[in-house]
Structures are given as C-alpha cells and as structure tokens.
Design a protein around this nucleic acid. Structure first.
Length: 271
DNA sequence: CCGGACGCCTGTCGGC
DNA sequence: TGCCGACAGGCGTCCG
C-alpha cells in the first residue's frame, strides 16, 4: 500500500506528537514481520528520545541518541497515534509507548512491513544502502534518469518502480506519472528521449507532491498518523479506472499486467 | 549486470 | 450459502 506520499503523510502527522518525546516502553505482540522484530527492541528503545523523524524512500527513520528505529509499512502497514489505554485489535503488532499518554501503534495485516533497530549511520544499513534517487530532492532530474536508463530494456513503468533507480514510486504513482507525461508504460526505459525524461521526472515529482497534499491514497486500509484517510484516489487519472473515460481525451482507460502488477494507461494519450 | 518470476501473508471479492 | 481462485499499495531472492 504505502508509497512515498503515504509514508510522508504518516511522517508529517507524527512529527508534532513524537519529536522530542521520550519512549517509556515497547510492547511487541507479534514479532513475525518481514524480518523478525528484534527481541531486544524494547530494551534498546526504553528511555530513548526521538530527536527527528526522517524518510528515505518508503522507509521511516526515528532518530534517537543511540540509534535509529527503522520502519517500513510493506503493503498493508499503518502507524497511528492512539491513547495509551486503547485495547489492541487483531494485526496491531507493536506499540511504542511515549511519555504522556500517547502510543505509536504499528498495524499490518499482511506483515510485509518491518520494524528494526539500526546502530550507526542509518544510510549504511543494508536496506538503505542501495537506494536510488529521492524523487522530491534536487538530484532527481530528467538528465539523471536519462543517464540511468541508458541501455536498459525494461519497460519504463517497471524501471520507475525500481528502488535502486528512484525510491518511493510504487504501483499507483508509476501509472499516474506516466499518464501525466504521456508515455506508454510498456516503452523500454532506454528508448525514451532526454526531453521526455525531463517531462517524466517533472510528472513523477508533481504527482507525488499532489498526492502528499491530498493526504495520500486510501484504497482500503491506509490512514495517517491521526487515523484520517487520504483522498488522492479521487484525483487519480488512470489507476483503478479501467473502462472509464480518460479525463484528458475521453478514450477508455485500459489495464494490463506487467510482471505480476497491474498497470493502467490511456491508449490514446500515452505513446 | 539485467530482467523476470516467486514467495512472503491476510483479507476481500467475484464467479460458479 | 460455500468454496476457490485471483488479486491487493512491496521487495528481497533466485534463476536463466
């Protein structure tokens, strides 16, 4: 589920309530996530103060004095702030209890998410080391993408979703950005001109920014830290709109499968 | 190195 | 009504 805009929405919702706060306790109800939640997580976190919350791609980093709490939301993960006394429901796997009466609760039905403790520089952690460009930072340009795509025969949609190239773009926003840029998702990444990469990089950026402004996309279970859904799905141009008219040209939106994932596009606007 | 498929896990939905 | 397969926002790993 959560792509960059949902993770960023979560981060922004947590900032005012978590930064500067001290952790009282951690309760792990189910450690069986994508990787096991470390058995000593509670011991590591107790008494730590969260000094900042950063995002790298779809990862969240809670910076503490002695290390970093690394969180990934997988397909169905959610981080919400709840009152201390709210009873856990099924799939509520971890509670991080802060001073005061707030608890940060990780909910994740499919358990593809992760919660890990990182010592030392977070960017050297195995999961973060190989990540590519941050699409909302200055280095993400058409020129950079054009250079990375040289010689690559993979479909551009797949290329956009490759975290080693650019991080944070998932299945929804790849389809949306390609529609905005007027590019066929099946086209080989290496056969896209520099001018079109300029357009596509700008589209990726503006699509993600608009989604963040809308509070992300809620298809089924995403909610912000405060428990509010996102509204970007109402603005979607192609995702989930098979058979409906393209908002630009009126042609029927089509769906296809690319490597086990569904892709939506307009056969008339996207070439 | 590259590209594609698989598997992890649970819930939901559509068709028969 | 019940069962079964397909599919869902991700991504590390394996294979050719």
């Amino acid at each position: 589920m959560p792509e960059l805009p949902e993770v960023e929405t979560t981060r922004q919702g947590l900032l005012p309530h978590v930064v500067g706060k001290r952790i009282r306790d951690v309760i792990v109800r189910n450690a069986a996530l994508r990787w096991p939640v470390p058995a000593d997580l509670s011991r590591r976190l107790r008494g730590e103060q969260v000094v900042a919350i950063r995002r790298r791609g779809k990862y969240l980093l809670f910076d503490c004095r002695e290390g970093h709490l690394l969180v990934h939301l997988g397909m169905s993960g959610r981080l919400t702030l709840v009152p201390d006394n709210l009873p856990p429901r099924p799939h509520d796997h971890v509670d991080v209890r802060f001073e005061g009466s707030r608890t940060l609760r990780l909910t994740d039905p499919r358990r593809f998410g992760a919660m890990l403790w990182v010592r030392g520089p977070a960017e050297r952690h195995a999961l973060l080391k190989g990540l590519g460009l941050e699409p909302l930072e200055a280095g993400f340009t058409g020129a950079a993408m054009h250079a990375k795509a040289r010689g690559r025969r993979a479909p551009v949609k797949h290329f956009l979703m490759d975290a080693r190239v650019v991080t944070g773009v998932g299945n929804i926003y790849a389809s949306e950005a390609l529609h905005r840029a007027g590019i066929d998702p099946r086209r080989s990444a290496g056969r896209i001109s520099r001018a079109r990469w300029d357009r596509l990089a700008a589209s990726v950026r503006s699509t993600l920014e608009r989604a963040i402004a809308a509070g992300g996309t809620t298809l089924r279970d995403f909610a912000s830290a405060e428990g509010r859904p996102g509204y970007f799905q109402q603005e979607a141009s192609v995702y989930g709109r098979e058979g409906l008219p393209c908002r630009t040209c009126g042609a029927a939106i089509r769906a296809l499968r690319q490597g086990q994932r569904s892709t939506f596009y307009c056969p008339s606007c996207q070439r």
